[in-house]
């Protein structure tokens, strides 16, 4: 049974059609990569799946574990097991990372009928996670993404992912703007996270993350539809040849 199912998704943003019929099926244990040039609709796809306001689904279906995501609020999609690592993580001044994560984890636990973790227990868990990922523990005391560097913001997204342990993680250009060390930390986090019960969807521009996290499938998104799917070797082809040859294939 598939974990995430996107069927014939048509999405408009500000009266412009951005996605016109995207289909995607992600099964447990799989890693998918979605590649495509700027403006092809990659972020529209991830934002729509997560329920961002202003993305208007005209037709199509979105299901996670058979649950219709379109009927759910963003937080309810989160409870259903969906995680989005933001391309541009948002700053929340004055709210510490620790407080933010605990509030999120407690909300999830409450939803499942579990009691909230004690602060001591939570801090213990977080310390363990932070150490495992070679993060500076100071990280947890700072405001959410407040004056974080680009790399720190992206690492923070990975930390949140591990903390909330979703069924499907969408990573929107988590690799962009990272130096090689940060890229490896992010890759390590993703490999740490994946198992046979969950799935990862990587949205990326470049092949380089895929050297560290090998996808089972690569899809090319162009002008709002997936024009080609293949295995990891497709990413290498794209790296070499760019997107123009595909554009010609699908030309008007």
């Amino acid at each position: 049974m598939s974990l995430l199912e996107v069927s014939d998704l048509h999405v408009k943003v500000a009266d412009r059609e951005i996605l016109n019929g995207v289909n995607l099926e992600v099964n447990p244990g799989e890693i998918h990569a979605i590649m495509g040039p700027n403006g092809s609709g990659k972020s529209t796809l991830t934002n729509t799946i997560a329920g961002q306001e202003g993305y208007i689904v005209e037709t199509g279906d979105l299901r996670l574990n058979r649950t219709n995501l379109l009927e759910l609020e963003p937080e309810e999609r989160s409870y259903a097991g969906l995680f989005l690592a933001f391309q541009y993580p948002v700053e929340i001044p004055g709210v510490t990372n620790m407080e933010f994560l605990k509030t999120a984890v407690d909300s999830h636990r409450k939803q499942r009928g579990d009691t909230a973790l004690s602060s001591v227990e939570f801090i213990k868990n977080m310390r363990a996670l932070v150490t495992k990922l070679d993060f500076n523990p100071e990280f947890l005391k700072r405001g959410v993404n407040e004056s974080f560097s680009g790399g720190e913001k992206k690492r923070n997204e990975i930390l949140q992912m591990l903390c909330l342990d979703p069924k499907v993680a969408l990573l929107d250009e988590t690799d962009s703007g990272l130096d090689i060390d940060a890229l490896q930390v992010v890759a390590k986090g993703i490999n740490e996270f994946r198992n046979s019960n969950n799935a990862v969807v990587l949205v990326t521009h470049y092949q380089r993350l895929l050297n560290h996290v090998v996808p089972d499938y690569v899809h090319v998104l162009l002008n709002g539809t997936i024009v080609k799917s293949g295995d990891a070797s497709l990413a290498l082809d794209l790296e070499r040849k760019g997107y123009a040859w595909l554009e010609q294939d699908t030309g008007p």
């Binding site: 963003p74 989160s78 409870y79 993580p89 929340i92 933010f100 909300s107 405001g143 949140q160």
Partner: peptide, 27 residues
């Protein structure tokens, strides 16, 4: 809206998110 959306994506209800953001603002 971006702050609210990010909190909600992480499973934090909007009212709680706003109160958290305001408290952070006043910290």
């Amino acid at each position: 809206d971006d702050q609210l959306f990010m909190c909600r994506q992480r499973g934090i209800e909007p009212e709680k998110a706003v109160s958290m953001i305001v408290n952070g603002f006043c910290r």
